[in-house]
Protein backbone atom coordinates (compact mmCIF):
# COMPACT_ATOMS: atom_id res chain seq x y z
CA UNK A 1 0.00 0.00 0.00
CA UNK A 2 1.09 3.53 -0.68
CA UNK A 3 -0.61 4.75 2.48
CA UNK A 4 2.67 5.77 4.10
CA UNK A 5 3.41 8.36 1.48
CA UNK A 6 0.96 10.96 2.61
CA UNK A 7 -2.28 12.09 4.16
CA UNK A 8 -5.29 10.70 2.29
CA UNK A 9 -7.88 13.10 0.92
CA UNK A 10 -10.75 10.95 2.19
CA UNK A 11 -9.68 11.34 5.81
CA UNK A 12 -9.30 15.10 5.56
CA UNK A 13 -12.58 15.35 3.67
CA UNK A 14 -14.41 13.49 6.41
CA UNK A 15 -12.76 15.52 9.15
CA UNK A 16 -13.62 18.81 7.44
CA UNK A 17 -17.27 17.96 6.89
CA UNK A 18 -17.53 16.87 10.54
CA UNK A 19 -16.05 20.21 11.58
CA UNK A 20 -18.57 22.03 9.42
CA UNK A 21 -21.41 20.03 10.95
CA UNK A 22 -20.11 20.85 14.40
CA UNK A 23 -20.02 24.57 13.62
CA UNK A 24 -23.59 24.34 12.33
CA UNK A 25 -24.72 22.46 15.43
CA UNK A 26 -23.11 25.05 17.68
CA UNK A 27 -24.97 27.79 15.82
CA UNK A 28 -28.28 25.96 16.17
CA UNK A 29 -27.71 25.40 19.87
CA UNK A 30 -26.83 29.03 20.54
CA UNK A 31 -29.71 30.34 18.43
CA UNK A 32 -32.24 28.27 20.35
CA UNK A 33 -30.98 29.98 23.49
CA UNK A 34 -31.65 33.53 22.25
CA UNK A 35 -34.86 32.74 20.39
CA UNK A 36 -35.05 31.56 16.83
CA UNK A 37 -38.68 32.23 16.07
CA UNK A 38 -40.48 34.78 13.98
CA UNK A 39 -41.54 37.51 16.39
CA UNK A 40 -44.31 40.05 15.98
CA UNK A 41 -42.01 42.35 14.03
CA UNK A 42 -39.90 40.01 11.96
CA UNK A 43 -37.32 37.41 12.82
CA UNK A 44 -35.70 37.24 16.25
CA UNK A 45 -31.95 37.40 16.85
CA UNK A 46 -31.43 33.69 16.49
CA UNK A 47 -33.59 33.07 13.44
CA UNK A 48 -30.96 33.55 10.77
CA UNK A 49 -28.13 31.74 12.53
CA UNK A 50 -30.56 28.92 13.30
CA UNK A 51 -31.56 28.28 9.69
CA UNK A 52 -28.06 28.85 8.41
CA UNK A 53 -26.78 26.35 10.96
CA UNK A 54 -29.42 23.91 9.80
CA UNK A 55 -28.43 24.31 6.15
CA UNK A 56 -24.79 23.94 7.11
CA UNK A 57 -25.41 20.71 8.99
CA UNK A 58 -27.47 19.32 6.10
CA UNK A 59 -24.91 20.26 3.46
CA UNK A 60 -22.00 18.92 5.49
CA UNK A 61 -23.79 15.63 6.11
CA UNK A 62 -24.23 15.41 2.34
CA UNK A 63 -20.53 16.04 1.83
CA UNK A 64 -19.73 13.52 4.53
CA UNK A 65 -21.77 10.82 2.80
CA UNK A 66 -20.04 11.56 -0.50
CA UNK A 67 -16.65 11.51 1.17
CA UNK A 68 -17.30 8.21 2.91
CA UNK A 69 -18.46 6.63 -0.35
CA UNK A 70 -15.48 7.91 -2.31
CA UNK A 71 -13.02 7.16 0.47
CA UNK A 72 -11.46 4.14 -1.24
CA UNK A 73 -10.56 5.84 -4.51
CA UNK A 74 -9.52 9.16 -3.00
CA UNK A 75 -5.96 10.24 -3.70
CA UNK A 76 -3.45 11.92 -1.48
CA UNK A 77 -4.33 15.21 0.20
CA UNK A 78 -0.69 16.01 0.73
CA UNK A 79 2.46 13.89 0.64
CA UNK A 80 4.65 13.74 3.72
CA UNK A 81 7.37 15.59 1.83
CA UNK A 82 4.98 18.38 0.96
CA UNK A 83 3.69 18.44 4.50
CA UNK A 84 7.24 18.85 5.73
CA UNK A 85 7.65 21.90 3.50
CA UNK A 86 4.36 23.35 4.70
CA UNK A 87 5.40 22.73 8.28
CA UNK A 88 8.71 24.50 7.67
CA UNK A 89 6.68 27.66 7.17
CA UNK A 90 3.70 26.97 9.41
CA UNK A 91 5.60 25.99 12.55
CA UNK A 92 7.82 29.10 12.71
CA UNK A 93 4.79 31.23 11.87
CA UNK A 94 2.82 29.68 14.72
CA UNK A 95 5.70 30.34 17.10
CA UNK A 96 5.86 33.90 15.75
CA UNK A 97 2.16 34.46 16.43
CA UNK A 98 2.42 32.88 19.87
CA UNK A 99 5.43 35.03 20.74
CA UNK A 100 3.83 38.37 19.83
CA UNK A 101 1.97 38.85 23.15
CA UNK A 102 5.20 38.14 25.06
CA UNK A 103 7.98 39.76 23.05
CA UNK A 104 6.00 42.30 21.06
CA UNK A 105 5.67 42.22 17.31
CA UNK A 106 9.01 43.84 16.47
CA UNK A 107 11.33 41.33 18.07
CA UNK A 108 9.18 38.44 16.87
CA UNK A 109 9.25 39.82 13.32
CA UNK A 110 13.02 40.21 13.36
CA UNK A 111 13.36 36.62 14.52
CA UNK A 112 10.92 35.33 11.90
CA UNK A 113 12.65 37.10 9.02
CA UNK A 114 16.08 35.99 10.20
CA UNK A 115 14.95 32.39 10.66
CA UNK A 116 13.31 32.21 7.24
CA UNK A 117 16.34 33.67 5.49
CA UNK A 118 18.71 31.37 7.27
CA UNK A 119 16.76 28.14 7.18
CA UNK A 120 14.81 28.43 3.95
CA UNK A 121 17.04 30.74 1.95
CA UNK A 122 20.44 29.50 3.09
CA UNK A 123 21.70 32.98 3.93
CA UNK A 124 24.40 33.32 6.58
CA UNK A 125 23.38 34.18 10.12
CA UNK A 126 24.97 37.62 9.93
CA UNK A 127 23.00 38.79 6.94
CA UNK A 128 19.84 37.11 8.12
CA UNK A 129 19.90 38.75 11.53
CA UNK A 130 20.77 42.11 10.01
CA UNK A 131 17.85 41.86 7.61
CA UNK A 132 15.56 40.83 10.47
CA UNK A 133 16.56 43.80 12.56
CA UNK A 134 16.25 46.10 9.57
CA UNK A 135 12.68 44.85 8.95
CA UNK A 136 11.79 45.43 12.57
CA UNK A 137 13.29 48.90 12.54
CA UNK A 138 11.55 49.96 9.33
CA UNK A 139 8.24 48.62 10.64
CA UNK A 140 8.80 50.47 13.88
CA UNK A 141 9.50 53.74 12.11
CA UNK A 142 6.55 53.42 9.74
CA UNK A 143 3.93 52.43 12.28
CA UNK A 144 5.05 53.67 15.65
CA UNK A 145 6.68 56.94 14.61
CA UNK A 146 5.08 58.12 11.37
CA UNK A 147 1.58 56.68 11.39
CA UNK A 148 1.30 56.65 15.19
CA UNK A 149 -0.21 53.16 15.19
CA UNK A 150 0.54 51.37 18.42
CA UNK A 151 1.50 47.76 17.68
CA UNK A 152 2.04 45.09 20.36
CA UNK A 153 5.25 45.81 22.21
CA UNK A 154 7.36 43.77 24.59
CA UNK A 155 9.83 44.39 27.40
CA UNK A 156 12.56 45.78 25.13
CA UNK A 157 10.40 48.56 23.73
CA UNK A 158 9.14 49.29 27.26
CA UNK A 159 12.69 49.63 28.48
CA UNK A 160 13.35 52.06 25.63
CA UNK A 161 10.44 54.17 26.73
CA UNK A 162 7.73 53.21 24.22
Amino acid sequence: MSMERGLRTGAVEIGTSLAFALAGAAAIWDSRRIGAGWGAEGPQSGTFPFWIGLFLVAASIGTLVQAVRAREESGLFVTWDQLRLVASVLVPTTIFVAAIPITGIYLASAALVAWFMHRLGGFGWGRSVAAGLATALVTFLVFEIWFLVALPKGPIETALGY
Binding site: G126, R127, A130, L133, L137, L160, G161
Partner: peptide, 15 residues
Protein backbone atom coordinates in the same frame (compact mmCIF):
# COMPACT_ATOMS: atom_id res chain seq x y z
CA UNK B 1 26.40 45.97 8.45
CA UNK B 2 27.34 44.92 11.99
CA UNK B 3 28.90 48.28 12.63
CA UNK B 4 25.74 50.01 11.56
CA UNK B 5 23.67 47.76 13.81
CA UNK B 6 25.95 48.62 16.72
CA UNK B 7 25.81 52.34 16.28
CA UNK B 8 22.06 52.18 15.88
CA UNK B 9 21.70 50.21 19.06
CA UNK B 10 23.81 52.63 21.05
CA UNK B 11 21.75 55.45 19.60
CA UNK B 12 18.58 53.77 20.77
CA UNK B 13 20.02 53.19 24.22
CA UNK B 14 20.99 56.84 24.35
CA UNK B 15 17.46 57.84 23.42
Amino acid sequence: MTLMGCSRRSLLIGA
